[in-house]
Design a protein around this nucleic acid. Sequence first.
DNA 1: AGTTATAGCGCACGATCGTTCGTGTTGTAA
DNA 2: TTACAACACGAACGATCGTGCGCTATAACT
Lengths: 199, 199
Amino acid sequence: MPRRTRGETARTRTTIVDRAVSVASTDGLEGLTIGRLAEQVGMSKSGLIRHFGTKEHLQLAALEAATARFTGEVWDPVAEEPGGLVRLRALCASWLSYLRRGVFPGGCFLSAASLEFDDRPGPIRDEVATTMRRWLWLLGRDAELARDAGELPADTDPRQLAFELNAAFMGANWAHRLLRDDAALERAQRSVDRLLTAA
Amino acid sequence: MPRRTRGETARTRTTIVDRAVSVASTDGLEGLTIGRLAEQVGMSKSGLIRHFGTKEHLQLAALEAATARFTGEVWDPVAEEPGGLVRLRALCASWLSYLRRGVFPGGCFLSAASLEFDDRPGPIRDEVATTMRRWLWLLGRDAELARDAGELPADTDPRQLAFELNAAFMGANWAHRLLRDDAALERAQRSVDRLLTAA
DNA sequence: AGTTATAGCGCACGATCGTTCGTGTTGTAA
DNA sequence: TTACAACACGAACGATCGTGCGCTATAACT
């Protein structure tokens, strides 16, 4: 059996984590199993877990990878847009596209992880919460910029708007995954349009 | 050790199911474990599972009990209101109150179950989807009644409105559980108010 | 050429999972 | 009083869980 060259730890690790993200997006982070994962990547259990030490570290690695992918797929494409309403619109479109493209086989990874771990204290919950706070902050910041630029009504509450946009996303993800309702994405788009149209 | 009188099966079953609902609302339906559940209700594993035959049947029983509780806590109090905008407003307020009262220790049971099983085909997924379709239908029906009665703009799309109201609920539950943000309920209320205010 | 660190495997462990089977105790009906 | 059905228990099953230990083969460094 062929041995890999030294320093390829990172490559193997990436292979494992990528697979872990896929599995966790459908079965949940807790549904992740070292044995099944090892089987899927063609490794032994002990050889696999060696890269992480502990299952919780593996879960954290998968979560971080999923967050990075989310950022790359949703935020990066619109980061260079001018701050304010333009970028906010682009960001919302980007999110809906991210869901439509099926970036994760099990829908929005972070939504699922949120509800899975919201009652289980620990580093995973903390990580998810931090990521989502940052996400809400992104939405709220451009909302504030848009309001200050007069692109949105002066009495707009940026945090309220961020909440409502995020709620539209969660509703879309929910309907899309559970009810297999493709129209949910259009509904969310309509909802976003209405929210981002100045009176 | 005392023996129960004949016919008390239903009572024991109820005890088990009630406990199962509590556990599942925080740990998820898949996190339910016969051993831990038996320990919590003071029974043996075999004596407990006897009432259901299979873990999946136990999960279904818990799901049905949770649905019944949801209906009792959210719908029943407003069922007698006049159909249309009045009942729709009352229903939304009832839902938010249901979340605020903490009917389930782990937040909205059905939201959690939705995202947990949206990628696992089987009777549990089917049951959740059916229940949620009915819920959306309830919202959409009163939205339609309200529109036809002139209480909402004539161009209102009842299904779109139902989607947005439900999204507000999901967003509220999410923020309330993950971020421990009590303001989420007020935000959702504001969102509902805006959605249900005729132009 | 010899040493050392790395990456992986095989095996085993204790624990817990869901489930089945046999047994006993109890309340009800014959 | 006897027979029966309901209800619960203890023990055990095979499977799988996460984790640790010891060994081997390789690649890099001296």
